[in-house]
């Protein structure tokens, strides 16, 4: 059983190495072959040629939070649906109806948030 999962672990390590590789390679090559002359203008954030006005650690729209919270609800719902979907043929009509009741409750919540305007981006 665990034998099957070892290649996945190894693959994750290899892909992290491949992910870091280009940056290290680029750092080595550019310092050997290219040049590295930083100055304060070059190291400042890019704002279409203007000098940067202020820090970018600013307030942002609360709707992004809202979307994140709604996402957690629905993603958990999908996590519940996965095992149910796999065994749907065995659990038969009773299993189907139970999940439909669960879905109904969530759909009521979904309709409520829709009516409240939580999904609007004007």
């Amino acid at each position: 059983m665990l034998d099957n999962y070892f290649p996945i672990l190894a693959f994750i390590f290899v892909s992290i190495a491949v992910g870091i590789g280009p940056s290290i390679g680029g750092w080595v090559c550019s310092s050997l072959l290219g040049w590295n002359r930083p100055d304060s203008q070059k190291l400042s954030p890019y704002e279409c040629g203007f000098e940067a006005f202020e820090d970018a650690r600013m307030k942002f729209d609360v709707r992004y939070y809202l979307v994140a919270i709604l996402f957690i609800l629905f993603d958990l719902e999908i996590a519940f649906l996965f095992p149910w979907a796999v065994v749907l043929n065995e659990i038969g009509f009773f299993g189907f109806v139970s999940m439909m009741i669960f879905l109904l409750i969530l759909v009521v919540g979904f309709i409520y948030e829709w009516m409240k305007g939580a999904l609007e981006w004007e």
């Binding site: 390679g25 090559c29 550019s30 072959l33 304060s40 400042s44």
Partner: peptide
Amino acid sequence: KALVKELIIPAG
């Protein structure tokens, strides 16, 4: 080309 370009790490 990408390999030999300068790598910039912004000050902030």
